[in-house]
Design a protein around this nucleic acid. Structure first.
Lengths: 114, 114
DNA sequence: ATTTTATATTAGCATATGCTTATATAATAA
DNA sequence: TTATTATATAAGCATATGCTAATATAAAAT
């Protein structure tokens, strides 16, 4: 029995969201790690406001989840999203960004609340 | 040895192109069939001008190829595109549209130059 | 050569997008 | 309470997008 496929409309709107450097990078980052806003600001070299607005779009679409931990709000990939599998398929075709997160860690800029 | 992955920028620009109902539908249609402009106009119920402009974007990006056959210009998916595999992965997540083409055939509106 | 047919191109317009700057909010620290 | 920190929101603006209407092009048919 085949899984239900989202309508073209829904898929197109997800692709539209991912069709932006910043948002595609964000989704690539949160696929395997939780990140907070200030980390995105550092990694993407963008203003806090701009990052925040991109995150809002991703959150409104349900592609990412947010969770407060003390000072910070952490974002993570929402594997429950109807297009989550497609997004993961897409991410297999772009270079992973773990190296950047490791660099952030070495620079002492990684936030860890565990 | 792993295949070279397009940069995030390049992937984002492909996704941006596909992040539109009309263009995603077109790419879905040409994945398995050659189609000419008037067929898209019929299938998508859009103006010829609008379809033509979408096709131009897809062609400029190299995602589709065009080939003249008599009266008509046929468009087909370009499997040589650096992101062709990703596009095929994406299309696996949307309902196929073969039924619509078959209906067109039954209506006697399918163009065939073979 | 003229007309017809299929497609492409252009201009114009309304709406969407992504950024910056400034300000608001909400949790923590002092 | 007040100040600080992390994040969100709003306003404004320049640019991008997708459509329509009108016109151009190019091959085919007459």
């Amino acid at each position: 029995m085949e899984k239900i496929k989202p309508e073209i409309r829904d898929t197109a709107s997800v692709l539209k969201l991912l069709g932006d450097n910043t948002r595609l990078s964000i989704v690539g980052l949160v696929q395997n790690h939780e990140c907070c806003v200030c980390e995105f600001v550092e990694l993407l070299q963008m203003s806090q406001s701009s990052v925040s607005q991109h995150l809002r779009k991703l959150r409104d679409a349900g592609l990412v989840k947010e969770q407060r931990k003390g000072h910070w709000i952490f974002y993570s990939f929402n594997r429950q999203h109807p297009s989550a599998e497609m997004v993961e398929d897409i991410l297999r075709h772009v270079p992973d960004q773990n190296e950047k997160l490791q660099q952030l860690e070495r620079d002492g800029l990684r936030i860890n609340c565990d």
